[in-house]
């Protein structure tokens, strides 16, 4: 089974989740736990960085759908950054750019929260 792991770092009021590897049905619960932890800690400004993510499946995308409402209700947001063309293509296919702000780099996404 392909590997997937995440690392979380805080930058002021923004939490950044870095994804690495394959985010699919098998590994989706890992990212889910990250969101649950951050919500528990009332950290609702979240940037998810994809630059080291090789693949995402619809189950992986589902995790973003499952928590976005709660996070936005709490005046936060999930912003996405650093997607490879292949990963962006999947987001684009399913219409995610309509719902999520997607940035080239992690820094741009973080900056958007601070503005």
């Amino acid at each position: 089974m392909a590997d997937f792991n995440t690392s979380i770092k805080d930058q002021g009021a923004v939490s950044i989740i870095n994804l690495k590897g394959y985010l699919d049905a098998h590994t989706a619960p890992i990212l889910e736990n990250n969101f649950v932890d951050l919500i528990d800690k009332n950290r609702f400004n979240i940037v998810v960085d994809f630059k080291e993510l090789a693949y995402i499946s619809s189950a992986g995308l589902g995790v973003f759908m499952a928590y976005i409402e709660k996070i936005r209700e709490s005046k936060g947001d999930i912003k996405l950054s650093g997607m490879t063309e292949k990963v962006f293509n999947i987001f684009d296919l399913l219409g995610f750019p309509l719902l999520y702000e997607i940035f080239k780099s992690e820094d741009e996404a973080v900056k958007k929260f601070i503005e």
């Binding site: 049905a25 989706a28 619960p29 499946s57 619809s58 189950a59 992986g60 995308l61 589902g62 995790v63 973003f64 759908m65 499952a66 976005i68 409402e69 399913l94 219409g95 995610f96 309509l98 719902l99």
Partner: peptide, 14 residues
């Protein structure tokens, strides 16, 4: 859970 994730991810459903 996986079923739900896949569906809401695939179709953008809340």
């Amino acid at each position: 859970r996986l079923l739900i994730f896949s569906l809401i991810g695939q179709f953008l459903v809340q």
